[in-house]
Nucleic acid binder design. Sequence first.
DNA 1: GGGATATGTGACACTTTTATTAAAACGATT
DNA 2: AATCGTTTTAATAAAAGTGTCACATATCCC
Lengths: 229, 229
Amino acid sequence: MSRTVLVVEDEAPIREMLKFVLEQSGFNIIEAEDYDIAQAKLCEPYPDLILLDWMLPGGSGVQLAKSLKQHEFTRDIPVIMLTARGEEDDKIRGLDAGADDYITKPFSPKELVARIKAVMRRVTPTSNEEPIEFNGLKLEPVSHRVVAKDDPVDMGPTEFKLLHFFMTHPERVYSRELLLDNVWGTNVYVEDRTVDVHIRRLRKAISRHGHDAMIQTVRGAGYRFSAKL
Amino acid sequence: MSRTVLVVEDEAPIREMLKFVLEQSGFNIIEAEDYDIAQAKLCEPYPDLILLDWMLPGGSGVQLAKSLKQHEFTRDIPVIMLTARGEEDDKIRGLDAGADDYITKPFSPKELVARIKAVMRRVTPTSNEEPIEFNGLKLEPVSHRVVAKDDPVDMGPTEFKLLHFFMTHPERVYSRELLLDNVWGTNVYVEDRTVDVHIRRLRKAISRHGHDAMIQTVRGAGYRFSAKL
DNA sequence: GGGATATGTGACACTTTTATTAAAACGATT
DNA sequence: AATCGTTTTAATAAAAGTGTCACATATCCC
C-alpha cells in the first residue's frame, strides 16, 4: 500500500532531497514549490500527508495550512510542517493552524520518515475491530487470530484476510475476480485459479471442527461464506 | 521520581500560575493552550496526569477528554478538570466523560496539589503497579522483577519494558512500529528489525519454563502476547 | 454415456518475512 | 578516557507463505 506525500517546499535542492529520501522509503511524491501550485496539485491523487515548509515566501505556508483545514475535502489530510531551528513561535502557530506535527530543519532522513509514519498511524482511524463469530468459528481482528470452538486455528496471512472478508460479507457469492480485488487488492496480476488454492488452504485450516462447510462452492459463479449448512 | 503534568488551559496567566505552583511542588510541567497543541504534546513524555480546563474555546475540553479516553494509549492517564464556579452541569458531564476529579476555579494551591496527589495515588496502583501474572510468569512492577514459577528471571531494561507492555496488553497483535511507539517511545527512530532482536532476547530470557511460547509471531502483522497456547 | 467445462488438490520453484548471530555503536560510570 | 553492560545495525540462515502448474474429480448437458 503505497502512500502519497505532497511536498511543498520552495527551495529546489531541499525539495529534491526530500523527494529522494521519501521515494527511497516507498512513498509516492508530488512536489509543489509554492502556494498556488500546491493548491492545484491537491486534487488529483489525494495525498495521504502533506509536508509543508513553513517559511514559504510571503508567509504562505501558514495560509496554506489554514486553507487546508477550512476545506472539507482537505481537512483530514495530516500536515507536518518543516521549520527552521528554534522558531518556537512558528511551531506554536503551526500547531495552532492545524499541523499534526513539526520537524526542525536540520533533520535526519530517518527521523523524517519515522515521523511521517507515526502521524499516518495516529491519523488512520481504527476500523471495525469487533470479533466476528459464526457457528463457533470466531475471528478476532485485534489479536489477529481465529479460534474454532476454543482451539486456536493456524493459517497464513492470505487465508486470514480471505476469511475475514468472507465473515464480514456472508451469504453472498463472490467471483474469483471479486475476491482478488477485495482480498488481494486491486490491480494485482494473479491467476483466477490461485483463489482456488487459497480456498483449499483455508478450508483445510478450519476443517477440524467442520467449519469448512461454511465455505461453499457456487459452480460457475464463485464462492460463498454461509452460516447455513 | 518526578511526575509530569500536562496543563491544558487557554488563558496564559492562569497557565503560568498553575505551572509555578506545580513546579514548586516538584512536578514536571508541560503546557498546552488548546486542543491541538495538547494532542501534539501528548506523545513525547507521557504525562502522568492531565489538568484540563473545561472551558476551552469551542468546547474542545470535553472533546479532548473524550478523545483521550478513546485512545488506548492515553486511556489510563487520569484527568482533573478545572471548572468555573457553580457550573454544576459541566461537572456532571465532565465526570461522565471520564474525568477523575474536578476543581472549581478559584482554588488554593494547596488544594490543587492535594487533589493531584490523591488522584495519582488512586490511579497509579491499579493501572501500573499491580503485579501481573500469566501461566506462572509473574511481573512485579514495584520490585522491577520477573519471576517464572518462583525462579527469578534476568533480563535487560528494554526486555522488561517490552514484557511489561505485552502483559498489560495481552491477546493483541502489535506491529513492530507500534511496539517502538509504545515501548521505546514515540520520538525514537530505530529500525523496525531491532524489535526482532529484543523479542529474541526476551524469549530466551523466559524460555526456561516454556513461557516463550506466549510471545507469538504473527507473520505479516507483528507480535502478540497470549496466554493461550 | 461421453465430451466439455469447472473445481479440487498436491507438489514445486520462488519470495518474503522472521530468527539468529556477531560485531559496532552507545552511554553511563568510574 | 577506559570499561562494562546494553542497544542497534547489519549480515546470514531458516522458516513460512505464495502463485502456478499438472493432473484428479466432479458436474453439466446433449
